[in-house]
Design a protein around this nucleic acid. Structure first.
Length: 122
DNA sequence: ACATTGACTAATT
DNA sequence: TAATTAGCCAATG
């Protein structure tokens, strides 16, 4: 695994503001996009992001990265939810999932919440 | 080179 | 909403 890719992912995750989250897919998309813009081979995918975070996610707020269902990693759900609650991240009524409509964030989205267009091809 | 695995996603049922 | 299925990218053995 390239250090470049790893660093790009960690950087992006570290850039997520408190109370907001990104999905694995969005992270992968943004990172890949950055590599393309840099003229490098576009690589990555949701699973690679997960792999990176599992291996080197210790230094970044990994709980701000959730899967497309708005749920934190299945192996650390409770810990992540605790941290998310502490940061006032919008959660759904059941309190088990993140309210993606309000919490989803990506670089450039800035403070705007109701982003009508998402960078990920959904 | 092939098979297995994983902090995933999207479409079906 | 939850369970199944199939596709996905890259690392590992």
């Amino acid at each position: 695994m390239d250090e470049e890719y790893l660093e790009a992912v960690l950087d992006l995750v570290a850039a997520v503001p408190p109370g907001r989250v990104m999905t694995y897919g969005t992270v992968a998309d943004v990172v890949a996009d950055g590599f393309v813009a840099a003229g490098a081979t576009a690589r990555g995918g949701p699973r690679q992001v997960g792999a990176v975070l599992s291996r080197a996610g210790g230094g970044v707020p990994w709980w701000r990265v959730v899967n497309a269902a708005g749920r934190p990693p299945v192996t650390h759900t409770e810990r992540a939810l605790a941290a998310l609650r502490a940061e006032r991240t919008p959660l759904t009524s059941d309190g088990l999932r993140v309210d993606l409509c309000r919490a989803l964030w990506w670089p450039g989205a800035g403070p705007v919440t109701g982003g009508p267009t998402a960078p990920d091809g959904s």
